[in-house]
């Protein structure tokens, strides 16, 4: 009898996995969550050497991984990040550390990048290189691939939230909505949200959408479906009363 269960379970699983779709990217963001970031030494142009630990022990930070020769996503990614962050008042302070994962990049080249973005004198932003790229990447679950034909890295645009204890609290891959960035920032301040949604083809009818600024779930359209029947019942009550009592409702 139990054998038939296993068989049955297998069939269900097989039919299921063929229909599962694009969750995979979201799942990549889960890798290495709550692992500690490798304490790589950092070099910022014109500053004494430091390491990740010296930064996070002062303030949690958001880590952006780029390389200066990138002709692809890196610069739109940084511009987008800059704009979203500048548009937004954040209650608690944090830093954004941009680190190159290209061994050819120098601290000066990173400084140039900062100047081009107009962020050189912004104390919130730090542009650095490290000589421990591999260890850092491994601790973040980040795996850029060198494409020697295009002379470019094949890579994700990755943002990583690091809290005050050096733990990875959340990761975001690609250009994302402001909402999700806020969620990342909330996480580095150890704001706990008991849940989050997975990407879903239909969020039209969801009950709640998580709002990281308040740390609360905001009512979604689905909630209207919960209230609708009560409204309909009251409506019926009034209509019936009006029709049988000739307008003397009360």
């Amino acid at each position: 009898m139990y054998k038939s269960f296993v068989f049955f379970a297998l069939i269900v699983l097989l039919t299921h996995s063929s229909s599962a779709q694009s969750f995979s990217d979201a799942m990549k963001e889960e890798i290495n969550i709550y692992q500690k970031i490798y304490d790589a030494p950092l070099q910022v142009a014109g500053k004494p050497p430091a390491s990740f630990k010296e930064f996070y022990s002062q303030q949690p930070f958001v880590l952006a991984l780029v390389f200066t020769r990138c002709v692809g996503i890196c610069s739109p990614f940084l511009v987008n990040l800059k704009e979203t962050i500048q548009l937004q008042p954040f209650e608690k302070d944090f830093k954004i550390i941009v680190v190159s994962f290209d061994p050819w990049d120098t601290a000066d080249e990173m400084e140039l990048l900062a100047r081009n973005l107009g962020l050189k004198s912004d104390p919130k932003w730090i542009f650095a290189v490290t000589d421990s790229i591999d260890q850092m990447n491994r601790s973040l679950g980040f795996d850029p691939v060198w494409d020697s034909v295009r002379m470019q890295f094949d890579h994700d645009a990755l943002l990583v939230g690091i809290n005050g204890d050096g733990y990875i609290t959340k990761k975001l891959i690609g250009l994302r909505e402001r909402n999700e960035l806020n969620q990342l920032v909330a996480s580095i301040h150890n704001v706990f949200s008991p849940t989050y949604r997975l990407p879903n083809p239909n969020i039209l009818f969801s009950c709640f959408n998580y709002d990281p600024i308040s740390g609360k779930n905001k009512p979604g359209l689905g909630l209207a479906f919960l209230a609708l029947p009560a409204v309909m019942a009251v409506g019926v009550l009034l209509i019936v009363s009006m029709s049988v009592r000739k307008r003397k409702i009360l």
Binding site: S206, L228, P229, A233
Partner: peptide
């Protein structure tokens, strides 16, 4: 009220059933 809830619920089920996969409901709702 709760019978209206049943009607809404059944409508959402039918919508998904008849749409042959293009409309998917939200499990929490």
């Amino acid at each position: 009220t709760c019978l209206f809830v049943a009607v809404v619920l059944m409508a959402l089920y039918f919508a998904e059933f008849l749409s042959k996969g293009s409309f998917v409901n939200d499990a929490l709702l």
